[in-house]
Simulated assay, not measured.
Amino acid sequence: MHPDTWQPASDVHDFLARAGDFLRSRPALHSIPLTVTEGLVSRGPGAYGDGEPVFGVLERAGEVGATYFRTPPNRLSLTPLGPDEADALAAHLAGRGHVLPGVGAERETAAAFASAWQRRTGVTPVLHERQRLYRLGTLTPPEPYPEGRSRVAGAQDRELLMRWYAGFVADINGFGHTDPGDWADTRIANGRVTLWETPDGTPVSMAGVTAMVAGQIRMAPVYTPEHLRGRGYAGAAAVAASRAALATGAAEVLLFTDLANPTSNGLYQRIGYRPVADFAVYAFQDTERDR
């Protein structure tokens, strides 16, 4: 085997047997593959999409140095790569007949792969979103703090969570996200959504979290209906969810933000989150097919 070779993995178990130690070596940067593969192991191949998941590893002199995965219809997800590695991956995937809707990765990696994929396939990459990964430092409640209290969402909140999750996906122009009912059921069962409610018991914001893997928990999503925004509810929900994550023993509490939203980026920094790395998401458009 060539010392620097991309190799497909047969399934999530094969992938983790080969790449698990590598992913756990940098849990913050590898948060997405860690949490997605945990979901696939615990809930099966349909946890994040309708198609068969695809995985692969880059072998460097017998050691895993990078990975890719995709849960169709979602975009490709990559760990950090250099330009030559990104080009080799594009050749590997194109040669195996893969058709990709997009890619998400650390900023330079995403740009390198998008360019390589365009050269290999002729599709046009379009920057869909710029993101920033944050890690919690010292948790600091916002001022002023809204009146109310937090609680864990229960079965009685299912319809609300479904509606709010759909609203969140619409707000971010998301594609390939989980069915709202499945999303709500999984998080209710595991107590992974914190609601902020007003003193009269009306829910006004939510903050979800991923399962803890490799000592890290990622907050996703944080959502407040549009007519309730600007009152501090999202900050209160995020603080409550962050505090709960720390209480479970998480060594790192993480979150991604959309860099096009200065309000949310400012909020998370005020409550104690600090930048780790910038990411980018590209959508791929087949210009020949779309004519």
Score class of each variant (00 low, 15 high):
120 R>W: 07
255 L>N: 00
123 V>M: 14
151 R>L: 10
53 P>K: 03
221 P>I: 12
273 Y>N: 14
99 V>H: 13
282 Y>S: 12
45 P>A: 05
169 V>A: 13
38 E>G: 08
195 L>C: 13
36 V>H: 15
121 T>G: 06
156 Q>R: 13
177 H>A: 14
36 V>Y: 11
154 G>T: 10
104 G>Y: 01
123 V>T: 15
63 E>G: 05
264 S>H: 08
41 V>Y: 03
38 E>A: 08
203 P>M: 12
161 L>Y: 13
51 G>Y: 05
226 E>R: 07
163 R>H: 13
281 V>L: 12
106 E>H: 04
174 G>Y: 03
31 S>P: 02
204 V>D: 01
271 I>Q: 06
17 A>E: 03
53 P>V: 01
195 L>E: 14
260 A>V: 11
288 E>D: 09
82 G>Q: 04
260 A>W: 13
269 Q>V: 10
125 P>K: 01
85 E>A: 15
248 T>D: 06
273 Y>V: 06
231 R>Q: 07
287 T>E: 11
254 L>P: 04
200 D>M: 07
231 R>E: 12
99 V>N: 12
38 E>T: 08
45 P>V: 06
261 N>D: 07
279 F>A: 00
166 A>D: 12
222 V>R: 11
134 Y>T: 01
183 W>T: 09
211 A>Y: 05
249 G>R: 11
63 E>Q: 09
75 R>A: 07
140 T>V: 12
90 A>R: 01
164 W>N: 09
17 A>P: 00
141 P>H: 06
145 Y>K: 06
129 E>H: 02
13 H>T: 06
26 R>C: 00
271 I>D: 08
106 E>S: 04
275 P>K: 06
65 G>D: 03
19 A>W: 00
73 P>D: 15
239 V>D: 08
